[in-house]
Design a protein around this nucleic acid. Structure first.
Lengths: 187, 187
DNA sequence: TTGTGTTTTTGATGAATGTCAAAAGTTGAA
DNA sequence: TTCAACTTTTGACATTCATCAAAAACACAA
């Protein structure tokens, strides 16, 4: 839990009351590798903080699994579309390693927003960060070649390569596994 | 201004005080076609609401202009990365039509957040909406073919086609103008 | 150490899309 | 109405990447 609070204080520092409230409202979850945190079709009612471990979000397209994001230590994780709209998720969230997570329900979080302006501020700032992170990925996806995307990954988030299989990374980069293998052999 | 307030109340309804504060803090701007609202290299210190008109965000890559987003009526517009981080923008924002905008500086907005919890909430909710909208575009960019992306555009935002030149739309879809022209001739 | 299941690489081929160049179409000012 | 500038389409060809199939490498339990 301290890790979550430390991480949050990087975003926007919280008063003691708010920190205590968060402490009371997050619930610890320990899950083993390959477990599903969410199955497609379910409404994702929780926001998670990943203290330790790794997971992926993926959906099924023409019988293939498309991994479109990964989560690692210090990431907030949810199926954002489902969490925000309360519609059933189109994606699955699956553990890639045994992990420790902290969970809070949407209702509880909304209650905290009402009580603590500073917690809502925190969330506003978190969305800002996640927004620009996504924007960068979007621009890369649409306007860079497969090789450039792989080189960017090497530079910016090399830890992903060490913890995730090539097949998952290929679909994360939006290319086939064979193409990724060939790109790697040429660098 | 009423249009801005009406739009905002769709997101999250505001008390009278907060509405009046917004009224006082937004400034009206009228700009003619082709004007630049922002040039790359500048820090984007303002958030804009587009009451009437159209504009595009684009950046230069290998001597080509890449249009990566459009703004139309009722859109909040800024160079998000620059606005959030205060770093120089990599993109330009240019008017596609004569437009009416409402502008607020980051400092003023931050002041409103401090004073009015409900305005910060509004922003949190706005980011949620913009986040899932971007997420959808990202998935389309990475995992759909050019033809599918064009068909989605036809279905979901056909108004774009009526107001923007093909060259801009092609780069928005991440394809060459020639390919877009061929896709259209085949449908 | 062996064997089995999984992941990664390699090869051959085809489809989708980009690039360059030129033609055709459109628009708006004089 | 005409002309010049700009936008869109068409054609020929090159490049990138996906797909399918098979081989190689790796992981790890028996």
């Amino acid at each position: 839990m301290q890790r979550l609070l430390d991480h949050i204080n990087n975003y926007s520092s919280l008063g003691e009351d708010a920190q205590n409230a968060l402490n009371d409202c997050f619930e610890k979850i320990t899950l083993s590798k390959n477990t599903f945190l969410l199955n497609e079709g379910q409404v994702c009612r929780h926001l998670y903080f990943l203290e330790k471990g790794a997971l992926r979000g993926f959906y099924n397209l023409d019988g293939k699994e498309i991994t479109h994001w990964f989560g690692f230590e210090n990431d907030f994780v949810t199926s954002f579309h489902s969490f925000i709209t309360k519609e059933p998720a189109v994606e699955n969230i699956q553990l890639l390693e045994g992990s420790i997570l902290w969970s809070i329900s949407k209702e509880t979080l909304t209650g905290l927003f009402d009580q603590y302006h500073e917690i809502e501020r925190l969330m506003r700032i978190a969305y800002e960060k996640y927004y620009i992170r996504l924007e960068e990925r979007f621009v890369n996806a649409q306007f860079k070649t497969a090789t450039e995307r792989y080189e960017d990954l090497l530079q910016q988030t090399p830890h992903i390569l060490e913890r995730v299989s090539l097949g998952h990374i290929a679909s994360y980069l939006g290319i086939s596994q064979e193409t990724l293998s060939r790109i790697r052999s040429k660098l």
